[in-house]
Design a protein around this nucleic acid. Structure first.
Lengths: 345, 345
DNA sequence: TTGTAAGCGTTATCAT
DNA sequence: ATGATAACGCTTACAA
């Protein structure tokens, strides 16, 4: 057996082994592997054959060091237990996988410190890019800037990042909210309460504005006392809902601005012994799987979560590949799904 | 300004820069950074000062190549949209972060091919270890073995891996199920249907066995026609439930073996216009957040998801650090949370 | 205890 | 078009 074609044993296979087996230089092997320049078809074949025979797998760690880059992207979210972000992550994963990237999901618990820590880790690991659902729209720009200085691409998703030019992908919160509340108005409701739009994030603000716009559309006045801005904890939404239900006159309909708050709102409704929809109508922004299984099935505003993720990932990958197009904000449409929690009054 | 203490500009800071600034060799810097051996306190201080002044951050890619390892672990799950696995991932993340590891979550869609693909990627990236919720208990052992051959640690979570010795962490499915069904029996039910225990995974099998055991405990016969083994799709659970409800006599109680199936079961119940609990009692294995917000709140078996994740991660990290203890299977207790879907008949 | 220097497995420069 | 060789930044023998 000639030395040229002997299969190395023990240690793991490297370009060197492949080169030797194929009777070419490591440079040629590398060129074939990375489809660089033109390589003689004959040699290319020999290399490809060697790769196969030796079951060669490139050492990513070495490649990462040499190119000072990785094929990993990260998705930074405030709460991975929130089904919205989970659904988004499916879309991101799908797009990332398609392009050979690996996805890392980081959970900030809506804490800017956690977020900053994760960004530090991501920089240390030389991640290629980040899709950011900001923990604080007014403070995240620092982490974004620092990461860009390290050559990472960053795009914003669902939430904005203030104070820096950044591609953003969001749902049409305003339109979805306006549509949902219009629906309630058309079904005869006037005392419509709003629960759970955290005012410090774009989605919350925009959903509240959409709510107000619907009233304006119909020439109705907005009763600010019916607007309860709460954060993303179900217990707060529960307390807010109870306060609303205790009013006189009580609201005839509830527009709940997010899925987490919906749980709190329903607990309050049940606690007060009220029946949906006879005593209180209900619309939820976010179409959670169980809303359809509720009794009665609950009307919801559905976001195209998967597409949000795909769109963000595609944009990020374009940036990673150096696409110079101007910074843009993209909006994805929402959809009102009418079920049985909002019959005519 | 002496050359020794000049701050390098432009390129990123390396050990070399730190060494120069501190007036020591790169070896000493490395030793300080990795708290190796004994270093002269004086020098150690100089190095630490230099690190701080230069804002030095070790290049992980270089370290990874040199040590041929990473500080990343992966969690491989069949469905990241399943709240159970999400909750588990929180526990894993918590433990990983605590030890300075980064967590990568991989989604197999219950497809052994996807799983194999991910394992390949993880090997390519020289991940330190994997927590595996197998997509196929009978086939996963190949991927596990291959990964071990590459020096990766692997532990099983929630589901078993057959044909290979592997640390496993599971809930007490049998006990939880037995307790839930006993509860129904004590509340006067005899016609208790079982929905959704996929027989090809340990949790499904064990939950069915627990169901049967409860009947034996009370000296009752098991009616096999009341057992509907379905997979993890809500539509299948829905169809199975409808078939059960159409029986004569119809079951008076439903024991649903997982959260996903619960949605299907409830859709069927609502479709048939039945009221919980007056016409049908209900227990769900898995305490989803919305079960408490349902009307009426639904009795559930709660798994300690966070602890499952922490336990698995801790075990994995021990293995990564070379702990030689014998392979073990650990069981975590479950808890029955009685709500209003299971009153006395 | 400290420093020098040899890799880790790639990619990329520069001759040929 | 191809090959020899120098990095990439770190850890770790081995020498002093």
């Amino acid at each position: 057996m000639s030395k040229r074609s002997s299969v190395p044993v023990g240690k793991s296979i490297t370009v060197k082994d492949v080169a030797q087996y194929a009777g070419v230089s490591v440079a040629t092997v590398s060129r074939v592997l990375n489809q660089r320049e033109t390589v003689d078809p004959e040699l290319r074949l020999r290399v490809q054959n060697a790769v196969e025979r030796l079951k060669y797998r490139p050492n990513r760690l070495a490649r990462n060091l040499r190119t000072n880059s990785t094929t990993v992207i990260a998705l930074v979210v405030p709460d991975i237990q929130n089904p919205f972000f989970v659904a988004v992550s499916r879309g991101v994963e799908e797009a990332a996988l398609r392009e050979g990237y690996t996805l890392l999901v980081c959970n900030t618990d809506d804490d800017i410190q956690h977020e900053a820590h994760y960004f530090q880790v991501l920089r240390d690991e030389s991640i290629a890019g980040v899709i950011l659902c900001s923990a604080d729209e007014r403070l995240s720009h620092a982490a974004v800037q620092a990461s860009r200085d390290h050559g990472m691409a960053v795009v914003a998703l669902d939430r904005r990042v203030e104070g820096i030019a950044i591609d953003s992908i969001l749902s049409d919160n305003f339109g979805g909210s306006r549509l949902a509340v219009s629906h309630l108005i058309e079904r005869g409701h006037r005392q419509i309460a709003l629960i759970g739009a955290s005012d410090i994030y774009a989605p919350g603000r925009e959903r509240r504005l959409g709510y107000e716009q619907a009233f304006h559309d119909y020439g109705l006045a907005v009763d600010r006392d019916l607007i309860k801005v709460t954060d993303f904890r179900a217990t707060n939404a529960e307390a807010a809902t109870e306060a609303l239900l205790d009013r006189d006159p009580a609201p005839t309909a509830l527009f709940v601005c997010n899925g987490v708050s919906a749980i709190g709102a329903l607990r309050a409704i049940n606690r007060r012994g009220l029946r949906v929809p006879d005593q209180i109508a209900l619309v939820v922004f976010d179409d959670l799987d169980w809303l359809e299984a509720y009794s009665p099935p609950i009307t919801a505003v559905s976001q195209n979560t998967r597409q949000l993720g795909i769109t963000a990932a595609d944009q990020l990958l374009r940036r990673i590949n150096g696409d110079p197009e101007p910074v843009q904000e993209r909006r994805l449409p929402t959809q009102l799904i009418v079920r049985q929690s909002t019959p005519a009054l």
